[in-house]
Each structure stands twice: as structure tokens, then as C-alpha cells.
Simulated assay, not measured.
Amino acid sequence: MMNLMKAEIYKLSRNHTFWVLIGVVTGLSALLHCLVITDWWLLSGTEFDKAGLSELNALSAFTLLLYFNFIVSTLAAFYISTEFRHNGVIKNQMMSGNKRTNIFMAKYIVFSLGSFLVTVLIPLLTAIILVLLFGQGDILNVANLIYLGRAYSLFTLQLLSFTAIVLLIATLTEDSGKTIIFSLLLSIVMFAIEKFITASFIKMLYEHTFFYQLSEVFTYTMTKDEMIQSILIGFLSLMVILLCGIFIFKRKEIQ
């Protein structure tokens, strides 16, 4: 398992798409945070505003499902899906005596790590660094740091479920373009359910998915019960999706 993970980390570090995404996200994050901090972009009404962190309002753009879906699905398309082509990468891994479960989990762990770096860590670190450089570090008091820690910890748990379902899509489609398209279609459907569906039963089901929790975890005031519910939803969703992914990968014909 460790050798598989080392191999996946090596492949990820050599993946040009991964480095392009890092560059694009870093530049975009720096630009948006500069615009917010210097009042060129008057963004208000966010949960960061309610927490007294208006200088970090640009972070709300990086928590939108359609945004990080595009980032994560693009990474999956050019890091995971391409290995199902005729280069025999996955076939060689199995011929080397590795269990399919270990292969799948190694790809999932490294893929999730790369997704976390691009969608969470870089925007957050960029925001904190720019706030400090602009002399507004006093907003990073203990209470605000606790809020950020709680919100992003819960967000990361939900993101792990999302990376698992994108990896599942990439495994099923075996195609870069289809991985991106189907991932985006899934996000659009969830967005439509959240914004336009009024049926109470469907609303109730949606509010018990990790898709709903991806935005709900940034609520400034969350009760203990709400946090426990978020953890349970994220953990159970992750387990179910991973089990489905392993089941499909074990039975998949590898060319």
C-alpha cells in the first residue's frame, strides 16, 4: 500500500494539469483577496461577514460547488481517467501483485490530497498571508480562528465524499471529457434541487446529503447537534461511496 501511495504521489507531482491548477488557483485567489481587502470588490452578506472576517469574503467564491467541482473533476480527468487508456498503468499495477482495493484506495487518498491542496489549502493560506501583509492581522483572533478551524474541518470531511464520487465517475467513464461533463452535470442537478425544488420530501433528502453540508458548514453559529449531524453525514457518505467505488473497481474489466 505504501509503495502504491508513493507511486501515486510521484505521478501526481509529475502531472502537468496539477501544477497548472495550482498556478491558476494561486493567482486567482491572490487577485480576488486583494480586490476584497482593498475594497475594489464590495462583497457582503457572507458567513465570513457574520464572523467579523469581511476581509476574507473572497473565500466564499472558493466554497461554491460549481467552482471546486470544475477544479476537482479536471484533476480527476487528467490524473485518473487517463490511466484507463491504452498506456496500461492500472493493468501493470495489478500484474505487479497489488490488490485492486489497495490500488483504488491509494489513488483516492492521493487524489483527495491533491484536491484538498488546490481547493482548500491554497485559497485559505493566500487569504491569511494577504491579510497579514495588508496589516489587518488583528481579525485573526482566537474566536475567528476557531470558526475557521471548525468550518474548514467540516468542509474537508464533505470534500472527501465529493472526491470519492468524482473518482467513482472517473472509474466508470474512463474518459477525461466524460468525467468533467458528468461531474458538472451532477453539481448542476444538486444546485437545481437546492434552489428550485420546493417539494418538502426532496428538500429533506437533499438536506441530509454532503452536497448540502458543503455550504452549511460555514454557518457562523452551528449548534453541537448540527456539527454532529454534519460529521455523521460526511462520514457515512464517504464510507458508502468508497465501498461502491471499491465494488465497481474490483469487477471492472481493465484493458
Rank of each mutant, 00 (worst) to 15 (best):
M2T: 09
M5A: 12
M5Q: 11
K6T: 02
A7E: 11
I9A: 12
L12T: 00
G23E: 10
G23C: 12
V24R: 05
A30F: 13
A30W: 08
L31A: 12
C34Y: 14
L35R: 09
V36C: 05
D39V: 03
A51H: 03
A51P: 01
E55I: 01
S60M: 12
A61D: 09
F68M: 05
V72I: 15
V72W: 06
A77N: 11
F78C: 07
E83D: 15
F84I: 10
R85T: 01
Q93T: 07
T101C: 11
A106D: 05
V110P: 03
F111Q: 01
L113C: 08
L117W: 07
V118W: 04
L121W: 08
T126R: 02
L133W: 09
L133Q: 12
D138T: 03
D138S: 11
I139A: 07
R150M: 06
Y152F: 12
L160P: 02
F162S: 06
T163H: 11
A164M: 09
V166T: 15
L167W: 03
L167R: 00
I169V: 15
A170C: 06
L172F: 10
D175H: 15
S176K: 05
S176C: 06
T179C: 06
L186K: 02
M190D: 07
M190N: 12
I193H: 02
E194D: 13
K195P: 05
F201G: 01
M204Q: 12
Y206S: 13
E207H: 10
H208Q: 14
F211S: 06
Y212S: 10
V217Q: 12
F218L: 13
T219D: 13
K224P: 02
I233C: 08
L236T: 14
I241K: 03
I241C: 09
F247V: 00
F249Y: 10
K250S: 00
K252W: 02
